[in-house]
Simulated assay, not measured.
Amino acid sequence: MEKALWYLFAGSRGGANRVRIVKELADQPRNANELADELDLNYNTIDHHLDMLEEHNVVEPSDHDYGKLYFLTDQFEQHSDTFETISEKVS
């Protein structure tokens, strides 16, 4: 998981926006539209980043298709210290 976090947040383009998304989701679950509004990013950009984060088991969606909420996974939460270290370097 730690390698995936370094890749997602520090080793690939868009890492800074993914850090911002994760920080928003740490405060409370949100859907893609809410994230786009809160972070002042295009919906398609948010959707792309959420897909990547889901693929690497950082976020998981609710069961609803319309307005689906995203949550941080338990696996990610276990590596929150690594995330904090990475996010300090990216910010």
Rank of each mutant, 00 (worst) to 15 (best):
S62E: 14
L25P: 05
A26P: 00
Y66T: 11
A16K: 15
T82W: 09
F76N: 05
N57E: 11
E77S: 08
N33W: 07
S62K: 10
E2K: 15
E38D: 05
E60Q: 08
R13C: 10
Q78L: 10
A26N: 02
R30A: 12
N42V: 04
V22A: 13
E34I: 02
V58A: 06
N33G: 10
V22N: 14
N42G: 02
G11C: 05
A26R: 09
D27V: 12
T82H: 09
R13P: 08
T82P: 01
D51N: 00
M1Y: 13
P61W: 04
L5G: 08
E54M: 04
E84W: 06
G14W: 09
D47Y: 03
P29T: 09
L53Q: 04
L53Y: 01
L53H: 04
L72I: 15
Y43T: 03
I21M: 14
L8Q: 03
R30W: 01
G11L: 07
K3S: 12
Q28P: 01
Q75S: 15
V90L: 11
K23A: 10
D51E: 05
E34F: 01
E60T: 12
A36M: 00
V90K: 12
P29V: 05
Y66F: 11
A26F: 03
V22E: 13
A16S: 15
Q28K: 15
R30K: 14
M1W: 13
R18A: 04
A16L: 12
S80Y: 11
E2N: 15
G67H: 06
S12Q: 11
E55Q: 10
M52P: 00
Q78T: 07
E77N: 06
Q78I: 03
E77M: 08
I21H: 15
G67D: 05
D74Q: 10
F9E: 10
I86P: 14
E60N: 03
A16Y: 09
D63H: 09
